[in-house]
């Protein structure tokens, strides 16, 4: 009657298209392309399309700056004060005036390197060290320049340190009677030698008025009563010591001498004052 067909067995054979696709899928290059290159490209494309809108870009920027700011303004990064060490009141005030920000400020906003350069540029500062301490203080360690002499210049009196750098001004000589006086062109360049000469002139210090640089090459030691000791270019200190030794032995500088010329070591010369010269001449005539 009716031929009963057995149920068709499921054929596991893949279709030709399926087989081809499976082989393609097993190809390493294709796989890398589909799994890495394509998603990366799509992601790039989508984000580019999003960013291309100015509004979105602005929103991203605002969000970014907000995040950065909220991180930087955490209390552990805030600096609340400045602690200046090693500077006198005037210098501390000057340094305080240099700080370009108002406290409290985040430590990310402080440019320590630039600030250090600025502080070091002050004439009175020899060296400065800056750091932000724990607890939120900006610590400034300053080494001040110490004036060792007064330099008389055409427009007034200046303070000079051992390196010849100007550290400030004084209105009157009497404001700093403890410092010796130097003058003349090129006096600042040889402050070191001047200091050595002042040290050597210690025995007659009450009489010393100052040192004058002559012709930017040698020193004259000026004493009171208009006396001058002309010192040579080389070996000024030994020459001065020689004069002081003479003074020690014969009280030479107490005599009525105007100039002691030590410029030539072989022939030291003294010049008497006009009165002494005439007196000497009369004595000589009387003897004859």
């Amino acid at each position: 009657m009716f031929a009963m067909k057995p149920p068709a067995r499921r054929d596991p054979a893949p279709s030709r298209l399926g087989y081809r696709f499976h082989r393609l899928w097993l190809t390493p290059l294709f796989r890398i392309f589909l799994r890495v290159i394509l998603p990366v490209f799509a992601l790039f494309l989508i984000s580019a399309a999003y960013v291309a809108d100015d509004e979105n870009w602005a929103a991203i920027e605002a969000r970014y700056t907000a995040v950065v700011q909220s991180f930087q303004e955490r209390p552990e990064f805030m600096v609340t004060g400045v602690d200046i060490r090693g500077a006198d009141i005037a210098l501390a005030a000057a340094i305080n005036g240099l700080l370009p920000f108002e406290f409290p400020v985040t430590s990310f906003a402080i440019d320590l390197g630039g600030l250090k350069e600025e502080i070091t540029a002050l004439t009175a500062v020899k060296e400065a060290r800056l750091r932000v301490q724990t607890g939120g203080t900006l610590r400034v360690d300053v080494t001040q320049r110490r004036p060792v002499a007064i330099w008389r210049h055409v427009d007034g009196l200046r303070l000079v340190d051992a390196d010849g750098v100007l550290t400030g001004m004084v209105p009157n000589r009497t404001d700093r009677p403890d410092l010796p006086l130097i003058a003349g062109d090129g006096a600042r360049e040889s402050t070191v030698e001047a200091m050595a000469l002042f040290a050597a002139a210690e025995p007659i210090m009450p009489r010393v008025r100052g040192l004058v640089r002559m012709g930017e090459r040698r020193w004259d030691l000026v004493l009171d009563r208009g006396q001058r000791i002309l010192l040579p270019e080389e070996g000024a200190v030994p020459a001065l010591e020689r004069v002081l030794a003479l003074h020690e032995a014969q009280r030479m500088l107490d005599l009525d001498i105007v100039v002691v010329d030590m410029r030539s070591a072989a022939r030291p010369t003294v010049r008497l004052s006009t009165f002494a010269e005439e007196h000497l001449r009369t004595v000589a005539e009387r003897r004859q």
Binding site: P12, A13, R16, Y19, H22, R23, L26
Partner: peptide, 18 residues
Amino acid sequence: ERAIRTAIQSAQKMAETR
């Protein structure tokens, strides 16, 4: 051809290579 295709595809699947 279908039978050969079946055998090759399942072997490739196991080997994970073409």
